[in-house]
Amino acid sequence: MKTTKFLFLSSLFFLLITMHSFAQKKTLKDYVLFYSSFDGKASADIAVGDAQIYTAKSYKNTTNAKAGLHDSNVVLAKEKGIYGDAIHFKEAKTSAIFYKAYKNVGYSSTSWSGTISFWLRLDPNKELASHYCDPICITDSKWSDAGLWVDFTDHNPRQFRYGAMGDLAVWNPNNDSDETDWNKRTVTVNPSPFQSRTWTHVAMVFSKVNTKAKSEFKLYLNAKLQGVIKDINDPFTWEPKNGKIMLGLGYIGFMDELAVFDKALLPKEIKTIYELKSGLKAVFE
């Protein structure tokens, strides 16, 4: 009996050591689900799901979306990126430009954590149209219904926000949300640090979504924490195959190095991305 117990404990100890060793060996590249460098092409360099970028007339009807960029106001800008090329939204009124989120963002109805990482370059107080705009929004429906997004407000000077809006039927069932509801679900940076000649790194971190624990959402700019959304537990209920990584909603400016990780990155990992000398391609070499 003692021998059996000893063997069991020895095996368990060996398993724990092995698992810890494996975890220690995992690097940033092991967590990448999706990565688009925008270098020479708009399709993703790495994708667990569909790598194509799509263009549709609007987000209300994407059934006939065409693969590729098919809007003269949305182009690849050669050598304009922080590393190589970038995608450039030249006008606010554009078609619906998106990647399919299915498998590419790791969505789970029971436990969803991850990080959205990208770079932006613009002067929001001089270059944007007067209305709100979203450089990126990830949802299967709309920004206010199970959506993760960042936007520039219409304030003067512009504010930059990270929003985490769960199921509309849960957080705003009567369509009567007030400032308290919004403040619980947004991080606001005022004034925003963006400049026309300087790239700014953005990291949208989220953890424990769709679990019984309280979700947490963190916004980092240039590897510095800007704020945390916590003490909410709104469900994010998707039809997974309808999920989209929507780009450039009313946005005017550049975007580069778009990546999705399947874990809530630690501050030191976000700093590593921010300090890379040649972009995320370096972690795959």
Rank of each mutant, 00 (worst) to 15 (best):
T186S: 05
I116S: 09
G163W: 04
Q195V: 00
A101F: 07
D176W: 04
L168Y: 10
Y132T: 14
D167M: 08
H70F: 04
Y162A: 09
N104Q: 08
D176K: 14
Q226A: 12
N210D: 01
L225T: 01
K184Q: 14
A47S: 08
T188Q: 00
W171I: 00
K5V: 11
F284R: 02
Y83H: 14
F38T: 04
I136L: 12
D85K: 04
V75C: 07
T94Y: 02
W199Y: 15
D145Y: 04
Y31H: 08
F38Y: 12
D154W: 14
A164N: 10
A42K: 00
S113E: 13
E239F: 11
A164R: 09
N64P: 04
H131E: 13
L122G: 00
E257K: 04
A92P: 00
L12H: 05
L221C: 11
A129G: 12
S144N: 14
S10K: 14
K218N: 12
K25H: 08
S11T: 15
F6C: 02
I82Q: 10
S108P: 03
F13Q: 10
F98G: 01
L12W: 13
G227L: 03
G147T: 06
H201W: 13
D154M: 06
D145A: 05
M255N: 03
F254L: 14
Y35K: 02
L122C: 10
A65N: 01
T115A: 03
T62G: 03
A42P: 07
L33W: 01
Y274P: 01
L69I: 09
K26Y: 13
A264H: 08
P135E: 11
F236D: 03
L76Y: 14
Y54T: 00
G163H: 14
F284K: 04
I252T: 15
A129R: 10
F89A: 06
L28Q: 01
L120W: 01
I245N: 11
E285Q: 08
L168Q: 13
D234H: 06
P157L: 04
Y220G: 07
N222G: 08
S109Q: 00
T62C: 05
D39Y: 02
Y220I: 07
K208R: 13
Y102D: 11
I245H: 12
F8Q: 12
E79I: 09
A223Y: 03
M19W: 12
L76A: 07
N73A: 10
Y31N: 09
N233H: 09
R121W: 01
A47L: 04
T139I: 01
A282L: 05
A23C: 15
L7W: 10
N174H: 15
P267N: 05
S21D: 12
N222E: 08
N190P: 03
A51V: 00
M255R: 13
S108R: 02
G166S: 07
T186I: 11
